[in-house]
């Protein structure tokens, strides 16, 4: 039997929710302020002009395009590497299995700065030039963990019997993979991919170390925070980033829930 929550508990839980969510709402408000030089509250007036200004800014558009491309390609690579790793680890034992699992998790378990600095020094040691592809390598490295975790969790809930049943019914290995295993894994791959995309799109630390003079959207935001310039435009870009990361997260959550229920 559940008794009702006490008022004190409700207030404390409510406070935590407010603390978690209200700050972001202010970013939305400030995207409309007419004040362009300070963070004055309340805004002296509201306008939608900054959205147009931001959209006209070619630097921002280039940064947005780069961020989207890096996120898309890193996600794709992470899904391939993560799924392969999950398939290898699932139901098999081999020497160094725990070590591999450790190395998959390490890029998100270690502080980003360590991953970033290690990759940067390796790129320098190898005399490689910093480019779009060094960014992709950095991002894919920490995205693998997300893809792997989602796929392996799904595999653990998949009964090996269905694969055997498929084989017994005469399906070849490829057919079993295509018609039995893949449909089982697809939801987990979609969710993992969405989360990896959101993670990559807004990553700043590893990005700083693996980029040459490429400017992703987070790098653009960060540089305009450190040296304040066009404040209202920064607010608009911030709103944009929230929305772009919000969509895949909500989608992934919905998808995961539906897969859970079915």
């Amino acid at each position: 039997m559940r008794t009702k929550a006490s008022l004190g508990l409700k207030l404390a839980a409510g406070f935590t929710l407010v603390y978690l969510h209200v700050p972001i709402l202010f970013v939305f408000l400030y995207a409309f302020t007419t004040e362009s030089a300070s963070f004055r509250f309340p805004p002296p007036g509201l306008t939608t002009d900054w959205f147009g200004v931001a959209w006209q800014n070619s630097e921002i558009r280039a940064a947005l395009g780069l961020s989207l491309r890096v996120a898309a390609i890193s996600t794709l690579i992470a899904l391939i590497v993560g799924t392969l790793a999950a398939a290898a680890v699932w139901r098999t034992n081999f020497f160094g299995k725990n070590t591999l699992s450790l190395f998959i998790i390490l890029p998100i378990a270690l502080p980003g700065i360590i991953t970033g600095i290690a990759l940067r020094s390796a790129i320098n040691l190898g005399d490689l030039t910093f480019s779009f592809w060094t960014l992709v390598v950095g991002h894919a490295t920490f995205c693998v963990a997300v893809a792997f975790n989602n796929v392996i969790a799904r595999m653990r809930r998949t009964s090996p019997n269905i694969l055997e049943a498929s084989m017994d019914l005469g399906a070849r290995g490829w057919q079993t993979f295509r018609h039995v295993l893949l449909p089982q894994l697809a939801p987990a791959m979609v969710v993992g991919g969405m989360l990896a995309f959101a993670l990559s799109f807004d990553e700043i630390i590893v990005t700083t170390f693996t980029a040459g003079n490429q400017q992703t959207l987070p790098i653009w935001i960060f540089s305009s925070l450190v040296r304040p310039r066009n404040r209202p435009v920064t607010n608009v870009v911030a709103v944009f980033v929230i929305i772009i990361t919000f969509i895949p997260i909500i989608f992934a959550q919905r998808y995961a829930q539906r897969a859970e229920e079915s």
Partner: peptide, 14 residues
């Protein structure tokens, strides 16, 4: 999951 950088930034306003 949502933007770490923007969430930090929001406190600059606050």
């Amino acid at each position: 999951w949502s933007s770490y950088l923007v969430r930090v930034y929001s406190w600059k306003l606050i």
